[in-house]
Lab assay of single mutants.
Amino acid sequence: MSGNGNAAATAEENSPKMRVIRVGTRKSQLARIQTDSVVATLKASYPGLQFEIIAMSTTGDKILDTALSKIGEKSLFTKELEHALEKNEVDLVVHSLKDLPTVLPPGFTIGAICKRENPHDAVVFHPKFVGKTLETLPEKSVVGTSSLRRAAQLQRKFPHLEFRSIRGNLNTRLRKLDEQQEFSAIILATAGLQRMGWHNRVGQILHPEECMYAVGQGALGVEVRAKDQDILDLVGVLHDPETLLRCIAERAFLRHLEGGCSVPVAVHTAMKDGQLYLTGGVWSLDGSDSIQETMQATIHVPAQHEDGPEDDPQLVGITARNIPRGPQLAAQNLGISLANLLLSKGAKNILDVARQLNDAH
């Protein structure tokens, strides 16, 4: 009898209710805020589980004197976190989706994509230029951005401005803007500013005609071990179906173009009346040469937790077992079709030249 009692006690200790789920994140304040929001949602869904947040620095956090596009290494903000995932030191990792490459290392998958916040870019102005827009900034004003995508589009749109690289986390960039006289304004992701509670610093939100956004911008991705079915089931509740389908289309477009950090590629997606609209573009580094096109596809946005595919093969690095396969494939095909259209119009040449120029500098 006593033996059975011990077995029952052991089973209770090993039951999922007692389990601590370890969540990996970057150390920056924004990353911690984003991770806290994901953990809060998981806690609400699984009140019996405990969650421990483990923060670590990544290569991208450490190399702050070089433009991201020049470092010449993929997975700048993800490699150390993936290493911890691989060694079973954490069970899942919360990322900004735009930091996750469209091809993940073997053994990993994006197990959830959370509801997207505003994906557009924002302009934050130096205190002396508050009330201005990019259009009304004085001639030769210097605007800071760490992104080739932003610089290429904005140089084309605002030729009277000069664009220079600015690195560091959000706090560091804002301090550089406010305390030094080098920059009249800087460009940042609206979602990051909003998550930090800095709505009052948003001086201008850039519309798609001015600057399309990065693939996955404004959404959070939760990376897990691809074979860890328990954790895949656990994080599945975080999937937002519309965000998922938009981001599958965007990531398929980028992957098929073979774009990345070192080339200016941008997108804009919208879901309306059962249609998914995808606009994508590529630019030369100075913005003088560009190709942009829009395509659409009829896609039914499923309700969360309709029964999805059981075999769960990944699409552009994403596993969404609780979302039907048909809409996911339709979104992926839309991204591939748009990429093929741009490639047929000469996108590869623009991107190759951009890559060579970026590598040469």
Score class of each variant (00 low, 15 high):
Pro313Phe: 02
Ala249Pro: 04
Leu104Lys: 01
His305Glu: 15
Asn171Gln: 12
Arg325Lys: 08
Ser184Arg: 15
Phe158Asn: 12
Ile110Ala: 02
Gly111Glu: 03
Ala67Phe: 00
Thr109Arg: 00
Gly335Ala: 03
Glu250Leu: 02
Gly168Ile: 00
Asp228Gly: 12
Asp230Thr: 00
Gly317Thr: 07
Ala360Thr: 10
Ala297Leu: 04
Lys157Leu: 12
Gly216Ala: 03
Ile205Tyr: 15
Leu341Met: 10
Ser290Asn: 07
Arg173Val: 02
Thr41Asn: 09
Asp352Asn: 06
Leu232Phe: 11
Glu293His: 14
Pro302Lys: 05
Ile350Leu: 03
Leu342Arg: 01
Cys261His: 00
Val93Pro: 03
His268Leu: 08
Thr136Ser: 14
Val316Gly: 08
Leu134Arg: 03
Val267Trp: 02
Ile186Gly: 06
Ala189Asn: 03
Lys227Ala: 15
Lys115Asp: 14
Pro208Tyr: 14
Ile113Tyr: 02
His268Gln: 14
Met271Tyr: 15
Phe158Ser: 08
Leu220Cys: 10
Arg225Gly: 02
Leu42Gly: 03
Leu329Ile: 13
Glu135Ile: 11
Ile318Arg: 05
Asp99Ile: 00
Ile187His: 01
Tyr213Asp: 00
Gly192Gln: 00
Lys176His: 08
Leu329Glu: 02
Val143Ser: 03
Ile187Trp: 03
Ser96Arg: 03
Gln292Gly: 08
Leu276Met: 15
Ala151Asp: 12
His95Glu: 03
Asp61Gln: 00
Ala330Gly: 04
Cys261Ser: 02
Val39Cys: 11
Val282His: 05
Leu68Trp: 07
Asp273Phe: 00
Asp233Leu: 04
Ile186Asn: 06
Ala55Phe: 15
Asn171Phe: 04
Gly308Leu: 11
Thr145Glu: 00
Gln194Ile: 01
Pro241Ser: 14
Leu85Phe: 04
Lys345Phe: 15
Ile166Gly: 04
Val282Tyr: 03
Arg321Gln: 06
Val316Ser: 09
Arg325Ile: 15
Leu76Ala: 06
Met295Asp: 09
Val202Phe: 01
Val316Leu: 12
Pro101Leu: 06
Lys70Arg: 08
Asn349Tyr: 07
Leu76Lys: 14
Asp65Trp: 08
Ala347Lys: 00
His83Gly: 10
Gly144Lys: 09
Ser69Phe: 08
Leu68Lys: 13
Gly216Val: 00
Asn118Pro: 11
Pro313Cys: 06
Val301Asp: 12
Leu351Ser: 07
Arg321Asp: 05
Ser290Pro: 05
Pro119Arg: 04
Glu86Trp: 04
Gly144Phe: 00
Ile248Trp: 05
Val265Thr: 05
Leu206Asp: 05
Glu179Asp: 06
Leu174Asp: 02
Asp311Ser: 06
His126Asn: 10
Gln194Arg: 14
Ser344Cys: 10
Ala152Thr: 14
Gln275Cys: 03
Asp311Tyr: 07
Ile53Met: 08
Ala331Arg: 01
Val93Cys: 08
Leu188Ala: 11
Phe125Lys: 02
Ala152Phe: 04
Val215Ala: 09
His268Arg: 15
Phe163Glu: 08
Gly111His: 00
Ser141Tyr: 08
Gln155Cys: 11
Thr298Val: 12
Leu244Asp: 00
Gln332Met: 15
Leu188Cys: 11
Ala40Asn: 07
Ala360Pro: 00
Ala67Thr: 14
Gln332Tyr: 14
Glu162Cys: 15
Leu100Asn: 01
Lys272Gly: 02
Arg149Lys: 03
Lys345Tyr: 14
